[in-house]
Each structure stands twice: as C-alpha cells, then as structure tokens.
Simulated assay, not measured.
Amino acid sequence: MSRLMIYGANGYTGRLITAAAAARGLRPILAGRDRDALDALAGPLGLTRRVFALDDAATIARQFDGVEVLLNCAGPFSRTCAPLLDACLEHKVHYLDITGEIDVFAHCHRAHNRGVHEGVLIFPGTGFDVVPTDCVAALLKQRLPDADHLVLGFEAAGGPSPGTARTSVEGLARGGRARIGGELVEVPLAWKSRTFTREDGSVRTAMTIPWGDVYTAHVSTGIGDIETYMALPAKTIARMRWLRPLKPLFGLGPVQRWLKARAGATPGPDAARRARSGCTVWGEVRNARGAEEKLAIVTPNGYDLTVSASLGIVERVLRAKPAGGFATPSLFMGAEYVLGLPGVRRIN
C-alpha cells in the first residue's frame, strides 16, 4: 500500500504531480471529491483512488488508513487546509501542501506545538510558492547575517492554472500585505513599485503583492522587514492602484463568485507553453549600516518547479521520518535545495 496520498490529484497541478510521482515509482493514493475524474486519472496509471469531501472529520479520518504523508494540492487552501491538517494531526500523518496563501501559512504555524507533540511535520508551501523565494532569502541571510530588510521578486510567465487564478481572486479582498518591524501589516494594492533587471539586461517593472514569503521568510530568516514583488507591465500596476477604492466590494460573496467563475474558466498552460516560459527570482537584503547582498536565479515554469520541488520534499519525508512541527523549505531541505532542482541556476 502506498504511504503517500495526493488530495486534489485531479486538479491542474495535482495531475502534473501525480504523473511525475507515478513515474518515480511512488504509487500514490489519489484522492478528492470527483469520483469520475479520479477514476479517469487513476485507471491508466494503475493507482488506487479514494473519494471524499472535507465537510466531515470522521469521513476524512477513515481515508487515512496506511497513509504516512499527505500532499494537499486542492486549492483554495483557505478551505482545504484546516480540515486536512486537523485529520493529519489526529492520525499522525505528515501534512504537506503547495499553498502560497499567507493566512494558510499562519494557520499551519499556529499548529506548530501540536505538531511537535504529535510527531507530525507541518509543511505548507512545497512548490513554486515558496520554495525558490524562501531558499533565496535563506542564502542571502547566510551572506549578510545581520540583514534586517529583505526584498523578494519574481517574474512568472506562462499563465496561471484555474486554481491559482481563483486563489488570487480571494486575495483581492485582503489587499496587499508586507512585514514591517516583524509584524504582518495590510497595505494597499500595488503598495510599492520598482524595477528588476533580467539576465539579458532588460528591465521589468514590478509591484508589491501578498506573496507567502512575507510570512515564511520571516520564520526562515528572522528578518523583520519583508516586501514581495511580482513583475507586471506598468499599465497593469496602474490599474491595480485604480482598484484600491473598490477593495470592500471584492469581499462580497456575489462578486467573489463572479470573479472566480471568470478566473477559473481558462485552463492552465499546456506542456509546450510551460517549456517556453521560465521564471526569474530576485532577492536583496540590507542591514542597518546599509550593506547589501543580492542574488538572482532562473527556474523552469512555476508549475514544473512545483512538481520537482514537491516530490523531492515528499521523498525526503518518506525517507527521513522527520520530527514534528512547522517547517519551511530552507529550514527543512536546506537553503541550497532550490539550486539542485532540474533547470534551476544562479545568475548572480
């Protein structure tokens, strides 16, 4: 019997991870709510599937027989993390997911002490959110140990999956966030903007976004001031600032449902598009004296990196029998982890 369960296996990213896991010989149990979709996925791969929703704790518990590691790929994780994490803690199953949602990281971190007590690893963010950025932050902290300010930025081409797009819609209601003086602070949409330079010398405009590192990088490095940026056209940044007065509307149920329906209507990038669209990640740290260190890396498409990063972490967990508690990529796998993933290289 497999020791790994993938929940949300029939989603866009779940399918990519499932195929790669099967190719590695992991033989995961596929799980989710859609029986027909799971049957269509599991059958050709010769895998077992388990069909269950997340609205009843007893139902979830019955599905964990023989499972040691759960990889949750079902977003938005604001809905799926809590019931699955509770079940993992109750039944001593290590919890992993591919979230980038700040509030999910915070929820998981609050469960740290219970995870330690139960011997359950709690490891959200095993994919593009936030493996490359967290490792870059940790590498920079090694270079400048007394750094007190961190900037992270990325450019991700190829387009989002339906799940990522719907999660982004949820985030509009919260506006932006940054870490200031060690505290998470709500800031306006597109609070700050700046530029980053790519390997080819071209310059990209970018704006602050509520990326998961405003939570996780603080845990990993202890740095108190953290800003996270995404490269976007200047016109898009201007439009985001125009939307600031509409922020209260984005939290209304009918508006959220309409936006999510539109966001989820476009399929994620196919294999050819992913192959054509890599990512760049930038990091900068500064200390109180004004000393600076910078690091940039290029990676494959974020979904392809999510597959390789997540499965590398799964394999380590299955081998290592880890201690319980909350983990980040750099704390669990080491700051150099991202540099060993396929297609990743340092550019400065």
Rank of each mutant, 00 (worst) to 15 (best):
Leu38Asp: 12
Lys294Pro: 00
Val169Arg: 02
Lys321Thr: 11
Pro342Trp: 05
Ile237Phe: 04
Glu199Ser: 13
Gly171Arg: 08
Met1Lys: 09
Asp200Leu: 08
Arg3Val: 01
Val185Ile: 11
Met5Glu: 03
Asn10Phe: 08
Leu41Cys: 03
Thr221Ala: 08
Lys294Ala: 12
Gly251Tyr: 00
Ala31Ile: 05
His107Cys: 09
Ala40Ser: 14
Leu96Gly: 02
Asp65Lys: 06
Leu4Val: 00
Thr280Phe: 01
Val344Trp: 08
Arg286Trp: 10
Val338Thr: 13
Ser168Gly: 15
Trp211Phe: 15
Ile122Cys: 10
Phe52Trp: 10
Ser330Phe: 12
Arg33Ser: 10
Gly163Asp: 03
Ile29Ser: 07
Gly75Ala: 12
Arg239Asp: 09
Thr195Pro: 02
Gln256Ser: 09
Ser330Cys: 12
Ala37Asp: 06
Ala234Tyr: 07
Ile313Pro: 00
Gly176Leu: 09
Ile180Glu: 14
Lys247Tyr: 03
Gly14Asn: 11
Leu26Gln: 07
Val169Leu: 08
Pro83Met: 09
Arg174Pro: 01
Ala61Leu: 03
Ala157Trp: 12
Ala238Gly: 09
Ala238Phe: 11
Leu85Pro: 03
Arg241Gln: 14
Ile347Val: 15
Asn301Cys: 04
Thr167Gln: 06
Gly32Gln: 06
Val317Lys: 00
Thr99Ser: 15
Gly66Cys: 05
Asp146Lys: 11
Arg345Val: 10
Arg319Ser: 14
Gln142Ala: 15
Val120Asp: 00
Gly343Cys: 07
Gly8Val: 03
Ile98Ser: 09
Val281Gln: 10
Asp97Gln: 08
Phe154Trp: 05
Leu85Met: 14
His218Asp: 06
His112Tyr: 13
Leu246Ile: 06
Gly201Asn: 08
Thr266Val: 15
Glu68Phe: 02
His91Ile: 04
Cys135Met: 10
Arg174Trp: 10
Ala296Trp: 07
Thr221Gln: 07
Leu54Trp: 06
Lys260Ser: 10
Leu252Ile: 02
Gly14Ile: 07
Tyr303Met: 04
Gly224Trp: 00
Gly163Tyr: 02
Leu140Asn: 10
Leu249Lys: 02
Ala19Thr: 07
Arg3Glu: 15
Thr99Leu: 06
Ser2Ile: 06
Val314Ala: 01
Glu90His: 10
Pro76Ala: 06
Cys88Ile: 07
Pro28Val: 11
Pro160Leu: 02
Glu315Trp: 11
Ile60Asp: 01
Asp225Leu: 11
Pro76Tyr: 04
Leu30Ile: 07
Tyr7Thr: 12
Asp134Tyr: 15
Ala263Phe: 10
Ala323Gln: 15
Phe326Glu: 05
Glu199Tyr: 02
Pro188Thr: 09
Pro83Gln: 08
Leu232Arg: 09
Thr221Val: 06
Leu311Met: 07
Ile180Phe: 10
Leu252Gly: 00
Ser161Trp: 00
Leu16Met: 10
Ala206Asp: 02
Gly46Val: 09
Leu144Pro: 04
Ile226Ala: 05
Glu90Thr: 13
Cys135Lys: 09
Leu150Ser: 13
Val69Tyr: 01
Pro132Ala: 12
Met333Asn: 06
Gly163Met: 05
Arg3Ala: 14
Arg62Ser: 14
Val130Lys: 05
Ile313Lys: 04
Phe77Cys: 05
Ala58Gln: 14
Arg194Cys: 11
Glu155Arg: 13
Ala23His: 05
Pro124Cys: 07
Trp191Leu: 01
Asn301Met: 07
Thr59Gln: 12
Val169Gln: 06
